[in-house]
């Protein structure tokens, strides 16, 4: 199977007054049609900027400084603005964390959906309404025909996020990048949306990049997982491989931090310290200052090594014979 998306050595830097922030610094990933991968990391790991970079949505002072993003065989880095626009919303779409910030408050749901349709094809009013109602029903909005004439503020947070997902799916894209789409929602609504996304992606053959800080939601949805730290992928593999036998000390640390895996009342095994500044990262492995296994060699940057989609960026990966 040929890859739908192939990202190679992508680097996105932000030139700020205090120096260059290397938000994404050499990310490589590939995605097959219909595949769901999870991009996991904490704030500042570069997971969202990776998503934005794939769609060419990085604004100055941010800039893709190297690497390539090939989507359906086309290079997107350096593609003229107009051509990117005709791809976005049609072949690649994005769902953001906060639907109240991404929906236009002064347009009805129907108007926003019609704009998304008209941007890419000539479509009559009645046909647009029918398509919009159909897709709203598919994302689990009851009484969709009537909801079309509502404004965003008349909907709950969960319903607004469903509308945002519906808009992303309107033109049957091959890839949807979802940036923490359920983080702002309550658990009961999150479970509804996760269940719907999984079946929608399966039915329509849409590939998903699911960006989240929450290992549990990613594990439930994705087949493969990439763990990011300080702008780089530090570990990748199938969900089962990475989460049952993590090889990077950071992945191990993240899992150990989860209260759901610990004995109630006992201290959690915490990772000491905090993520380094991305404008002045430590030399070599960025995790070394917080790592219990660090040695002198860790001041040199380790490569992401491995085969068959299972990789780890560490000089002393866990599980190796000492």
């Amino acid at each position: 199977m040929t890859a739908l998306l192939e990202v190679r050595d992508l680097a996105t830097h932000f030139a700020t007054r205090t120096g260059v922030v290397r938000a994404v610094d050499g990310v490589t990933l590939s995605l097959a049609p219909g595949e769901i991968i999870g991009l996991v990391g904490e704030s500042g790991s570069g997971k969202s900027v990776t998503g934005f970079s794939i769609l060419g949505l990085v604004d100055p002072p941010g800039r893709i400084v190297r690497g390539s993003v090939r989507f359906e065989g086309r290079e997107l880095v350096g593609l003229p603005h107009g051509e990117l626009r005709s791809l976005r919303g049609r072949r690649i779409a994005m769902v953001f964390q906060d639907p109240s910030a991404t929906l236009n408050p002064v347009l009805t749901i129907l108007d926003q959906m019609r704009l998304a349709l008209e941007a890419h094809e000539r479509i009559g009013k009645a046909a647009a309404r029918a398509r919009a109602a159909e897709i709203l029903t598919r994302v689990g909005i009851p009484d969709a025909g009537r909801r079309l004439d509502s404004y965003p503020h008349q909907l709950s947070g969960g319903m607004r996020q469903r509308v945002a997902i519906a808009i992303a799916l309107l033109n049957r894209p091959a890839l949807v990048v979802c940036d923490e789409p359920t983080t702002a929602l309550d658990v009961s609504i999150q479970a509804q949306i996760l269940a719907e996304m999984k079946s929608l992606a399966r039915e329509s053959g849409t590939a998903l990049i699911w960006i989240s800080h929450d290992l549990s939601t990613v594990s439930a949805l994705a087949s493969r997982i990439l763990v990011m730290y300080a702008g780089r992928v530090v570990e990748e593999g199938t969900v089962g491989d990475v989460l049952s036998a993590p090889r990077h000390p950071y992945t191990r640390g993240l899992l150990d931090s989860l209260p759901s895996l610990a004995t109630p009342g006992q201290d959690l095994r915490q990772i000491p310290g905090a993520m380094p500044s991305l404008s002045d990262p430590p030399p070599g492995c960025a995790f070394a200052p917080r790592c219990a296994h660090a040695v002198d060699a860790c001041t040199a940057m380790p490569d992401l090594v491995g085969a068959g989609g299972r990789g780890v960026r560490c000089h002393r990966p866990l599980g190796d014979a000492p």
Binding site: V187, S188, Q190, A191, Q192, L194, A195, K198, L215, S216, T217, S219, A220, L221, S223, T238, V239, G240, D241, L243, S244, L255, L258, S260, L261
Partner: peptide, 16 residues
């Protein structure tokens, strides 16, 4: 609450 899935063969059954 989604539980951490650590086995590739197991499918998560959402019960919203």
């Amino acid at each position: 609450v989604p539980r951490l899935r650590i086995d590739d063969r197991v499918e998560v059954d959402f019960r919203p």
